[in-house]
Computed example of a mutant assay.
Amino acid sequence: MRDKDQRYYQAQLNMQQCSRRGLFRGFWSGVNKSMQQSERRVCRPVPRPPTAADEATLKRLCNQCGLCVSACPQRVITLVNGLPELALDANSCTECGECQRACSTLALAASTQHTGALATMSGMCIRQMGASCQECVESCPHQAIALSLRGITIDKESCSGCGQCKVACPSSAIQMGMKS
């Protein structure tokens, strides 16, 4: 006969049944919820370095030292209101990780690799005029851009928002917007 401890008697008094199946179901539902939350992409108000923590954590951890700004070889990181922000107007983020290595506060140490931006078609792609351009496709490190009959299609899930396609586009048909 098994020894019954205080938890068993407390469960019996509260009329709660605790089966082995229910116990494992409870454990696995917690694991599944935490996995779903970690897989969900963070919506950012502005483009951030690719491995930046979520906004609340970033605000709490960032000490506004500017080491990420000086470590960026592309010079696309600026401090706006004390927090790192990507300026993807004239250059792109190569996702090299130098900003992450320079950050001593772990504000740029998230496991996700996304800037919060999204490449969108906003102009006249020269493929629509019959040219055989595929500069944006070749420059995308995540294979998020595919050629279509008269233009391109951008996979929103694969796009990391680095802006390399925007810089490579000879007709400036790609712009960077924010993911919603």
Rank of each mutant, 00 (worst) to 15 (best):
C136F: 02
A56S: 12
L88D: 04
N81G: 11
C62I: 01
R75A: 06
G163D: 04
C18Y: 09
D89M: 08
P45H: 04
V167F: 04
L67G: 04
S160T: 07
C62G: 02
L83I: 08
A110K: 07
G26L: 13
L79C: 00
A90Y: 09
L147N: 07
I126S: 01
A131E: 12
L61H: 05
C136T: 12
T112L: 04
E95G: 04
A119Y: 07
L58T: 02
C103P: 00
S160H: 13
S160Y: 02
K59S: 01
S158G: 11
K4H: 12
P141K: 11
Q6H: 10
R40F: 12
F24S: 13
A168E: 02
V31Q: 05
R21W: 15
I126Q: 11
R20M: 06
A56H: 14
G177K: 15
P49D: 09
C65I: 00
R48S: 06
S148D: 14
Q36D: 07
P73F: 08
G66V: 01
S34A: 14
E95W: 09
M124D: 11
R21M: 13
G30R: 06
C140T: 01
S92K: 05
Q16A: 07
A173K: 10
Q16N: 04
C43G: 02
G151I: 04
V42I: 15
R41L: 12
G22P: 01
T78H: 10
Q134T: 08
I126P: 01
G66S: 03
R20V: 12
G130T: 13
F27A: 09
E98N: 01
M121V: 12
F24Q: 14
T51R: 11
E85K: 01
